[in-house]
Design a protein around this nucleic acid. Structure first.
Lengths: 143, 143
DNA sequence: GTGGTTGCAAAGGCTTTGCAGGCAC
DNA sequence: GTGCCTGCAAAGCCTTTGCAACCAC
């Protein structure tokens, strides 16, 4: 599932009017299994709605982030990518090519201890990011 | 300490020539206890070397990142900040104001399990980032 | 003297924004 | 009909880069 619940509804996303542009952006992001950036989404959406503008894509993605349906992934000097799979927040960021590789691994509870120690903060979530080399870059550097 | 070792030397940082510009950037970053971005470093360095350019600041910071003396912190739509304290990599990123708050808390071993499970990756490090509200924004939103 | 480094300014890339027209409701 | 949404284009911002002059070694 791309979204929080299997029963999400398009119009429950803080979006007032359900235009064909937004429908298309939502569908594209929902079915993306990579970590697309705005330009990638834009390209894909144009196959359906050729007249859509990049600005509209950005506005829609921003709305989805604000409402918690997408997680923005930022990396030094690169375009923001969007993560639609909110179930597990584990990534390897390749220090060579910048790719985000999904990692699925059970994590210990990282929240409650910190919450107890920092009661003055309002901690919502925790994100874990691994740094290293993806498989491609690793073998490329070894050969 | 800002750097890996108390005995680091300036000329051991992959920097060939130790100019006054680089000395100044290194000193400013070393003594910064916030998470400064390039513009902040630039301002501070100009107090010492008024003729320095922003480009030189960026180049020096990039070199420090490449050599592992600084960790870049990126956040959607904001300038890259630099972390000089490499001992613990824990932050809270405030979802309201974007501030990076340092958190010190012992972490369980998050590396070995994932390394075992993904032998095809070359994992160097792991970074943990908390998301929520900093103290200031929390009280501001409650009042 | 040599070649790494600087300052300057321009360019680059990503993202946001103002506005008039359009369309979902 | 109302007001949110769109497309367009320009602007904004952060960052990188080309180049001639400079200076640490």
């Amino acid at each position: 599932m791309s979204f929080r619940s299997a029963h999400y509804t398009l119009d429950a996303m803080g979006i007032k009017r359900l235009t064909k542009q937004r429908k298309a952006v939502l569908e594209v992001v929902r079915h993306a299994n990579n970590h697309p950036d705005a330009a990638w989404v834009y390209q894909r959406v144009r196959e359906r709605v050729p007249s859509i503008s990049l600005g509209t894509v950005y506005r829609t993605l921003d709305a989805l982030v604000d409402d918690g349906y997408l997680l923005p992934l930022t990396h030094s000097g690169e375009a923001t990518r969007y993560e639609a799979n909110l179930d597990g927040h584990l990534h390897l960021v390749c220090s060579k090519c910048g790719e985000f590789v999904d990692i699925s691994h059970p994590l210990p509870d990282l929240l409650s201890g910190v919450k107890e120690r920092y009661p003055e903060l309002d901690i919502h979530a925790v994100q874990v990011e691994y740094q290293g080399l993806c498989q491609g870059c690793r073998t490329r550097l070894q050969s």
